[in-house]
């Protein structure tokens, strides 16, 4: 699994939307993937999500996580029939058990839903920078201190990732073997790796707190922001589209039984 940011630096129409609009669209598509249960209906949502991912230039990210996507699809497809009542004609009979048409469609629908969620999330992070994610959290009304912590964590993450790798190399040079022994011994082998990373990280907190407070950092006062980005015409269109998707999905599903098994 890669540990680099999945953000794709590009100037696509998806990138140009504010984080708030992208959150709105991602939420709307997720609701559609959740509400529908037939493989065809969820498959349409999945196709739209794929389109958004491709439009945002995120297909290369899909190549980085394809293994997870396939694994989740297969696990969902194998597991869900065991938790579904058998109805309709049998479509597959094996010595281990049989699969009815209802079980097949139910499992396919659920597996498409899992993949849809992943693709929608992937499209969002492909088109939204870390700063954009934090701005998005702030724009949906989360407290400033929380957003500040998320933003700081996102900035510190690559630093600690690099520190963890450096410590691993140093400890391996001293003879640490993380792949030797039984599972318990292997878990315990991580102690010499975790302690230096952790203690080093915590030591920085005091210096950073003082630096912040010296610059007047205070989470209790009302804050103003430089460069606040208002919603542009394309954002209003995106939010209208998101609303349309949600309303259309709910009316179609619960009013007319569209996409229901």
């Amino acid at each position: 699994m890669s540990t680099r940011s999945l953000y794709v630096s590009a100037d696509t129409p998806v990138h140009r939307l504010t984080a708030r609009s992208k959150i709105g669209l991602a939420t709307a598509l997720s609701i559609a993937a959740f509400v529908f249960t037939t493989p065809i209906a969820v498959g349409i949502v999945l196709a739209v999500a794929f389109g958004a991912l491709a439009w945002a230039g995120g297909l290369r990210n899909l190549r980085r996580v394809w293994f997870i996507v396939v694994a989740l699809f297969v696990v969902g497809f194998v597991v869900w029939p065991a938790f579904t009542p058998a109805r309709g004609p049998t479509v597959l009979a094996t010595p281990l058990g049989s699969l009815s048409s209802y079980e097949l469609r139910f499992a396919l629908g659920r597996s498409f839903r899992i993949v849809s969620f992943i693709i929608i999330g992937l499209a969002f992070v492909s088109a939204t920078s870390n700063e954009g994610i934090v701005r998005g959290l702030r724009s949906i009304g989360l407290p400033y201190a929380f957003c500040f912590a998320v933003g700081t964590a996102l900035r510190l993450f690559p630093t600690f990732l690099s520190a963890a790798d450096t410590v691993r190399q140093a400890q391996e040079a001293r003879g640490l073997d993380l792949s030797a022994g039984n599972p318990i011994e292997r878990v315990r082998g991580y102690v010499p790796l975790l302690v230096p990373v952790f203690v080093n990280a915590v030591r920085q907190v005091n210096d950073q707190s003082m630096a912040l407070e010296a610059r007047g950092f205070d989470t209790r006062g009302e804050r103003t922001f430089h460069g606040k980005r208002p919603l542009a015409g394309r954002d209003w269109i995106a939010l209208a589209l998101a609303t349309l998707i949600v309303v259309g999905t709910l009316v179609g599903r619960y009013g007319f039984g569209v996409g229901a098994l």
């Binding site: 699994m1 540990t3 407290p143 201190a145 929380f146 500040f148 912590a149 998320v150 700081t152 964590a153 996102l154 510190l156 993450f157 630093t159 600690f160 990732l161 520190a163 963890a164 790798d165 691993r168 993380l178 991580y190 790796l193 975790l194 990373v197 952790f198 990280a201 915590v202 920085q204 907190v205 005091n206 950073q208 707190s209 912040l212 407070e213 950092f217 989470t219 209790r220």
Partner: peptide
Amino acid sequence: WRDTRMILLVAVVAAVYAAILLPF
């Protein structure tokens, strides 16, 4: 959330947790 050091501890814990969670 009123204390600067606690807020930074949130960020450090989050970053360390994610940095160890993903690769190892």
